[in-house]
């Protein structure tokens, strides 16, 4: 049995939806960031699959995947630092309790 590009696209769509569900439904800030990481993994699976099947001779998809990894690593670093800062000031990392801007 052999699989093609479509299988990778389907897999990455499923992973992306699961990540969206987690990012919207979770109450813990750390779990929201973990779900965002899941979303970016889904995007990168898509990019590597397209790079292999559509433009295999250039390596452009690899370069973009590498830069996406850099950006999401920076994102997770700053995001978790913000969670720590909120925790130090408010002694909680639960998102529903951070409602000062609620009208």
């Amino acid at each position: 049995m052999r699989v093609g590009l479509e299988a990778f696209l389907l897999l990455s769509a499923v992973l992306f939806s699961i990540g969206v569900y987690g990012a919207v439904s979770k109450r813990s800030a750390v779990q929201v960031i973990m779900s965002l990481e899941l979303i970016s993994i889904a995007v990168m699976v898509n990019m590597v699959a397209f790079a292999r099947f559509v433009t295999p001779d250039r390596g452009t998809g690899w370069a973009f995947t590498l830069f996406a990894m850099v950006v999401s690593a920076a994102e997770v670093g700053v995001g978790l630092a913000l969670v720590l800062a909120i925790y130090r000031r408010r002694h909680t990392a639960e998102l529903p309790e951070l409602d000062e801007l609620k009208g």
Binding site: R2, V3, G4, L5, E6, L9, L10, S12, A13, V14, F16, S17, R52, F53, V54, P56, D57, R58, G59, W62
Partner: peptide, 20 residues
Amino acid sequence: LLAAAANFPKKTISMPDAMP
């Protein structure tokens, strides 16, 4: 997303040869 991926116009099963 699944509908878009399932209707992907080009059916690509075999991978091209050249890889950098």
